[in-house]
Computed example of a mutant assay.
Amino acid sequence: MQTPKFTTHTPSFHAELKKRINDYFTEKGISPAGNYKLWTKGLILVVGFIALYVHVTFFTPASMWLAWGECIILGCLIAGIGFNIMHDGAHGSFSNSPVLNKAAAVTLGVLGGSHFMWNMKHNVIHHAYTNVDGVDDDIDAKPFLRMASTQKRYKMHKYQHLYFWFFYCWLHAFWIFFSDYKKYFTKKIGDIPLKKMSFKDHFYFWFHKVLSYCMFLVVPSITVGVVPAIVGFMTATLAGGFILSIVFQLAHTVEHTSFPMPDVVTGKLEDEWAVHQLKTTANFATKNKAISWYVGGLNFQVEHHLFPKISHIHYPAISKIIKKACEEYNVTYIEYKYMTTAVASHIAFLKEMGKA
């Protein structure tokens, strides 16, 4: 399908939101980028990851269960670095420094992914056309899962609300061993063509792939043996993959989110961009500080989609402004009080999508 267009409205709800948020930062005299709170958290995650990697790789515990537990924690740290450092860096909000933002963003390469592919898939496509089937690659899990009513239903989807846990665990492994390569060689993300890659883009794609494989498979194979290395890596990547999957799915594929499709004649979506984002995005557990700290504010997904260039450390404050504006403009603000209720809603959503 062709890239859809958004409807424009006067007065613009998006323009009003931007004005209120800009006024907030001006009045407070603060930058919308990250600050010492984010950098301290980033340092904790990176140091923790390096220390645990070194310990389990070069000073492997004699106890198999302890080593296995360390690999699970390593997977949790991989997800945490992705949520807090890579994600803010990729959106240019980790710091006011372009150099620091780039350094934060390319941590994805060390963890096995391609920053170039992520930027196109997430920043360019997903953030613009959230939940638009045929464009947003994040809701394309065919044939294993049916994430929209416009997608083809298979008999196995009747049970997808039971077996989705298994497939979510494989996200990270699928991403670094298959998905990136599919995009690279087909030069497309779904049906959307990739922008032309420069020599530097090609070089870093392959450099980071080799670096991550050496780090997670080759070196551990030398220090602990091939089989333990594979078991340890799979333990870490399955743990990290599940966490990454569930956090992102709770933001868009729950009972109350919409899956708008463009008009077949005009190619236009019904709403203006900001309203579209509010209809397709949900928050969860925003009062839980531990969850907010670990997932990099991605439980404030509404705020992130409306203002992706603002660091997640500001989301709790600006969420109050956005909620008030939604009330005034009669726009629904979707939020689940607890993570457990959001998970239950996601399961209910999958069950509904699995029905004939």
Rank of each mutant, 00 (worst) to 15 (best):
residue 223 T to S: 11
residue 147 M to Q: 10
residue 235 T to L: 01
residue 169 C to L: 14
residue 87 H to Q: 03
residue 221 S to M: 06
residue 188 K to P: 07
residue 205 F to Q: 07
residue 172 H to N: 10
residue 273 W to Y: 10
residue 204 Y to K: 09
residue 290 A to D: 09
residue 52 L to C: 01
residue 74 L to T: 04
residue 309 K to T: 15
residue 38 L to R: 12
residue 8 T to K: 15
residue 13 F to S: 03
residue 50 I to L: 12
residue 58 F to G: 06
residue 236 A to H: 04
residue 273 W to R: 03
residue 76 C to T: 11
residue 22 N to K: 14
residue 210 V to P: 09
residue 235 T to Y: 04
residue 240 G to C: 02
residue 261 M to R: 06
residue 297 G to F: 06
residue 309 K to R: 13
residue 8 T to W: 03
residue 318 I to N: 00
residue 154 Y to A: 04
residue 287 K to T: 15
residue 310 I to D: 03
residue 302 V to N: 15
residue 17 L to M: 09
residue 234 M to I: 11
residue 183 K to E: 01
residue 113 G to L: 02
residue 279 K to M: 11
residue 139 I to K: 03
residue 352 E to P: 05
residue 140 D to L: 09
residue 40 T to M: 12
residue 250 L to E: 07
residue 37 K to L: 13
residue 258 S to K: 12
residue 115 H to G: 13
residue 336 Y to I: 11
residue 52 L to G: 01
residue 100 L to N: 11
residue 193 P to Q: 02
residue 285 A to V: 00
residue 338 Y to P: 00
residue 118 W to I: 09
residue 136 D to Q: 05
residue 282 A to K: 01
residue 343 V to H: 05
residue 252 H to P: 07
residue 31 S to Y: 06
residue 344 A to V: 04
residue 146 R to T: 06
residue 146 R to Y: 02
residue 105 A to Q: 11
residue 138 D to K: 00
residue 176 I to S: 02
residue 143 P to I: 14
residue 349 F to K: 13
residue 328 E to T: 06
residue 265 V to S: 12
residue 326 C to Q: 08
residue 110 V to C: 11
residue 301 Q to C: 10
residue 290 A to Y: 15
residue 250 L to S: 09
residue 270 E to G: 10
residue 126 H to L: 01
residue 280 T to I: 03
residue 317 A to H: 13
residue 5 K to E: 00
residue 326 C to F: 09
residue 221 S to R: 05
residue 329 Y to I: 05
residue 45 L to I: 12
residue 320 K to S: 01
residue 347 I to D: 02
residue 219 V to N: 00
residue 120 M to A: 13
residue 61 P to T: 09
residue 108 L to V: 12
residue 355 K to L: 12
residue 165 W to F: 15
residue 186 T to E: 04
residue 263 D to P: 08
residue 216 F to C: 07
residue 123 N to S: 13
residue 313 I to D: 02
residue 314 H to V: 03
residue 333 Y to W: 00
residue 49 F to G: 06
residue 10 T to C: 07
residue 305 H to N: 04
residue 339 M to I: 15
residue 196 K to H: 10
residue 314 H to C: 02
residue 291 I to R: 07
residue 120 M to S: 12
residue 351 K to V: 04
residue 242 F to L: 09
residue 275 V to C: 04
residue 92 G to Y: 05
residue 90 A to S: 15
residue 75 G to K: 08
residue 304 H to F: 03
residue 61 P to G: 03
residue 90 A to P: 04
residue 227 V to Q: 02
residue 337 K to T: 13
residue 33 A to K: 15
residue 111 L to S: 11
residue 62 A to H: 13
residue 344 A to D: 04
residue 243 I to E: 05
residue 230 I to F: 11
residue 76 C to L: 15
residue 335 E to W: 08
residue 74 L to I: 01
residue 222 I to S: 06
residue 27 E to R: 14
